[in-house]
Design a protein around this nucleic acid. Structure first.
Lengths: 216, 216
DNA sequence: ATTTACTTACCGACCGTTCAGTAACCATAT
DNA sequence: ATATGGTTACTGAACGGTCGGTAAGTAAAT
């Protein structure tokens, strides 16, 4: 017994560390993964905790409930992307068609290829269950995203690059193939052994879209 | 007592009816609604049963399990739509661009505006949970749908209506704004009090798409 | 020695699933 | 027409596993 005690006092590395500052972000990151894989209802907090390297109790030190954790995941992960897109549009000096292409590719780089790709799917699946969060997402992500793209289209019409189409709708149509691809790609990944040719998809979309909206 | 007996014998309507033939379809219809509203995991079979006008036990007379019910919902509701689209394409005699427009509008009429609109959302949300069903859906709906549209695009390129673009990708791009709209519209219905202008969306998509793919 | 981040063991509600019992229906007889 | 007996579609209550949430206890840090 005294031997065991001596050993534990002298050498054994601590079984866990106290890392108050880092836990919330780690738990949110783990939760994002599991929520995306399983959906909200089917996600077990014990799984989230294990993936974050803690136990269930610790999750409740930092988040009031499963629902609160879910909201934190959505709020903290997706909003920064929109802000980044807005900043890009503000500082851009080229033509409208160049900016459309840039925004499309940037969306894919920041969302399509990262863990964030799961957020749109999650929101669509759980929208009915969390009206308040859905409103938040709609206002802070969907609407801001549309306004961003609509401003670019508007600019293109003003300076004669684009035909005078419905600006709001044209903005949605620039993004919807992307949003859809982001969601579908993961859902059917196992059904497409050859993979999804992203480059080709983006290139063709940009080509068709810009041809479609261009003047003559 | 004898009074009550007499009454029950003579007039009181039965508390329930035996309707073996009609039950499965009614349960599937009710299940479609609830699954779409709540998602698979959050759906209670008691709710499905109540909406179908039966009790939980009855559901188990006709379906082995919750999962079997879910699969029945997907299989029985969506496949007929694809077959209908294929039949339309076979019998169509006009130009490729007219057929593209027709298929787009038909998809919206048969899926977008009906209870079927919930199926794509369901499949996306639950794909990870039901690999086997996902494969079925991918083969019998997604792939068949793409093949259908790809054939039309191919035809348009052959006869000089369309530019020589990547056929597979162009087919996906013709449908993705629709699929996305179907899913998004319901999810954010409560956030769009003014509603979603379907006519405008479809018109603009068809206009932009056909302009984009047309030969000069 | 004290504080507190973290673990562990537990509770209680919920819900899929089961099954014994019941009521509707039907065939046959009176 | 009414009664009787048999079949089965349907009900309803109970079971048992699962998981969100809680709180007592433990170990890291200072």
């Amino acid at each position: 017994m005294s031997h065991a005690v001596a050993q534990s006092k002298r050498k054994s590395p601590p079984r866990w560390k106290r890392r108050k500052a880092a836990r919330p972000a780690e738990i949110v990151a783990a939760a994002l993964e599991v929520f995306v894989e399983r959906g909200f209802a089917a996600t077990k907090l014990a799984d989230v905790a294990r993936r974050a390297g803690v136990t269930k109790g610790t999750v409740y030190l930092y988040f009031e409930s499963k629902e609160a954790l879910f909201k934190a995941v959505v709020r903290e992960t997706i909003v920064p992307v929109i802000a980044q897109g807005e900043a890009l549009a503000r500082s851009f000096t080229g033509s409208a068609r160049e900016l459309v292409e840039r925004l499309v590719r940037e969306y894919w780089r920041l969302v399509g290829e990262t863990a964030l790709a799961g957020i749109p799917k999650l929101m669509l699946a759980e929208a009915a269950t969390f009206p308040e969060l859905t409103r938040f997402y709609y206002d802070e992500v969907v609407t801001r995203g549309h306004r961003l793209m609509a401003g670019v289209i508007e600019r293109g019409i003003q300076n004669g690059e684009f035909r005078p189409v419905d600006v709001e709708v044209a903005a949605k149509l620039a993004m919807s193939p992307l949003m859809h691809a982001v969601v579908v790609r993961r859902a059917f990944a196992s059904c497409m052994p050859e993979g999804f040719n992203v480059r080709n998809y983006l290139d063709t979309h940009i080509d068709l879209y810009l041809h479609g909206i261009a003047k003559h």
